[in-house]
Amino acid sequence: MKQEDVHRLAFKNLSRTLDRGWGFPNQVFKGRWSVFLFFESDRAFDPEFSDILNDILIIEGGSVACLLNIDKTNLFEFERISSIFIDRTTTRNSYGLALEGDGPENGWIYLMDKYICMSDIGDWCFYCEKSNDIAVMALREVEYVSRFQRPLSSLLAKPIEELLDGGRSPLFPFDHLVPAWRKVLLENYGRTGNLSS
């Protein structure tokens, strides 16, 4: 398959997944998802995140991941999207340079925008809001928690219940979210099954 074809497939997967009418704390994913794990959004904008995505792609058997800036994409048409494509050859340096862009005015590392990322296979998807400092990784199947254990551990991704119940992460105090947010996050992203099963 041509490079452009897999890029289009990754974009098509995420465009079918994102519910563009919603943001946190509401449910942003359409379709069937079994597990939601939260982490700090800044982790996705560290050059080392390219290593994590490469790891995920290898485990999944994917070719490329499309990282889309939702706020900079006015039309969800492939030719008009604001995106970065990460594949198994993407290095920390090239990912870091892509995030920096031309500087603070348009570099994604500086912007407080909303982002979504998904591969051409579509077994996972992450969504983040930098303005709220949180991100969520959605997985199609419960068993994918163990399948993607290594990259999920690198992200320090955990169920929302664990983070809200005093499970403070190093960079963001999930356990200090306002009650209204806590309630809606739990309703939309709470554990739907036993992760240990």
Rank of each mutant, 00 (worst) to 15 (best):
F78N: 03
D133S: 15
W181P: 03
L9F: 13
F39G: 04
V184H: 00
E143I: 06
D42Y: 13
N106Y: 08
P47S: 09
I59C: 03
D55E: 15
P104F: 01
I134C: 07
T192C: 05
T73A: 06
H7P: 02
D46H: 15
E100A: 15
F36M: 04
S131C: 14
G101S: 08
L67V: 01
L14G: 05
W181A: 03
L18N: 01
S197D: 12
Y144S: 07
D175P: 12
Y127A: 00
C117R: 05
Y127Q: 00
N74E: 12
S41T: 08
F11H: 08
I56T: 07
E105N: 14
R80W: 09
L53P: 03
G103H: 01
V6M: 12
E79I: 04
T17I: 13
R80P: 05
D55F: 10
S131M: 12
S82K: 13
Y115N: 02
F29A: 15
E141R: 11
L185G: 03
A135G: 09
F11R: 01
S15K: 13
F45L: 12
G96I: 11
D51L: 14
Y127N: 01
K114Y: 07
F39H: 13
V178E: 14
A138W: 04
A10C: 00
L163M: 07
P25N: 03
F29N: 14
E129L: 06
E129T: 08
T192L: 11
L152P: 00
Y110P: 07
K30V: 06
N188G: 07
T89C: 08
P179K: 02
P47T: 07
G23V: 11
F148W: 00
L75E: 14
R32V: 11
D51W: 11
G193E: 09
F78Y: 14
E40C: 15
A135I: 08
E187F: 00
G61M: 03
C128A: 04
D165L: 10
F126A: 07
T192G: 05
D175T: 01
E129H: 06
I86S: 09
S153G: 11
S34L: 02
N188E: 06
W124P: 01
D42Q: 14
E4Y: 11
G101F: 08
D175Q: 10
K183F: 04
F11C: 14
Q3V: 10
L67S: 01
F85T: 05
G166M: 07
P179I: 05
S83C: 09
T17Y: 09
D175W: 05
G166C: 08
N106S: 12
L97E: 13
G31N: 03
S197P: 03
L163D: 05
